[in-house]
Simulated scan of single mutants.
Amino acid sequence: MLRHKNIIVICLILLVLFCILKAAWWVFLLLFIGFAALVSWGSFDIRQNYFLKAYSSNPDRKERKIALTFDDGPHQMTEKVLDLLQQYNAKATFFCIGTQIEKYPNIMQRIVGEGHVVGNHTYSHSKSFGFFPSAKVKEEIRKNDDLLFEFTHKKIKFFRPPFGVTNPNVAKAIAATKHTVIGWNVRSLDTLIQNEDAILKRIKNKAKPGSIVLLHDTSLKTVRVLEQLLLFLQSEKYDMVAIDKLLNLPAYED
Rank of each mutant, 00 (worst) to 15 (best):
L2I: 08
I13V: 15
L14S: 04
V16A: 15
I20W: 06
K22E: 09
V27L: 12
L31C: 03
I33Y: 09
F35L: 14
A36N: 12
V39A: 05
S40N: 07
S43P: 14
D45L: 09
R47H: 10
Q48N: 12
Y50V: 00
F51R: 03
A54C: 10
K62E: 13
E63R: 07
K65S: 08
I66K: 06
I66T: 01
I66A: 05
D71I: 03
D72E: 07
Q76V: 12
E79T: 14
V81I: 13
V81P: 09
L84K: 10
L84M: 10
L85D: 01
Y88T: 01
N89Y: 08
T93V: 11
Q100I: 08
P105N: 05
Q109F: 04
R110I: 06
I111K: 06
G115W: 10
V118Y: 05
T122I: 04
Y123T: 07
S124G: 03
H125F: 04
S126C: 01
S134N: 14
R142E: 14
R142C: 10
K143M: 12
K143I: 09
K143N: 11
K143Q: 13
N144V: 05
D145T: 08
D146W: 12
F149P: 03
I156L: 14
K157N: 14
K157A: 11
F158N: 00
R160I: 06
P162H: 00
G164A: 07
N167I: 01
V170A: 10
A171I: 00
A173K: 05
A175K: 13
K178Y: 14
W184L: 03
R187H: 12
L189I: 04
D190S: 11
A198F: 04
I199D: 06
R202N: 13
I203A: 00
A207D: 10
A207F: 13
G210R: 02
V213L: 11
L214D: 03
L214H: 07
L215N: 06
D217G: 13
D217N: 12
D217S: 15
L220E: 14
K221Y: 07
K221W: 03
K221A: 04
K221F: 05
V223F: 06
V223Y: 11
E236Q: 11
M240I: 14
V241G: 15
A242F: 02
A242Y: 03
N248V: 08
L249S: 05
A251C: 09
A251T: 06
Y252P: 00
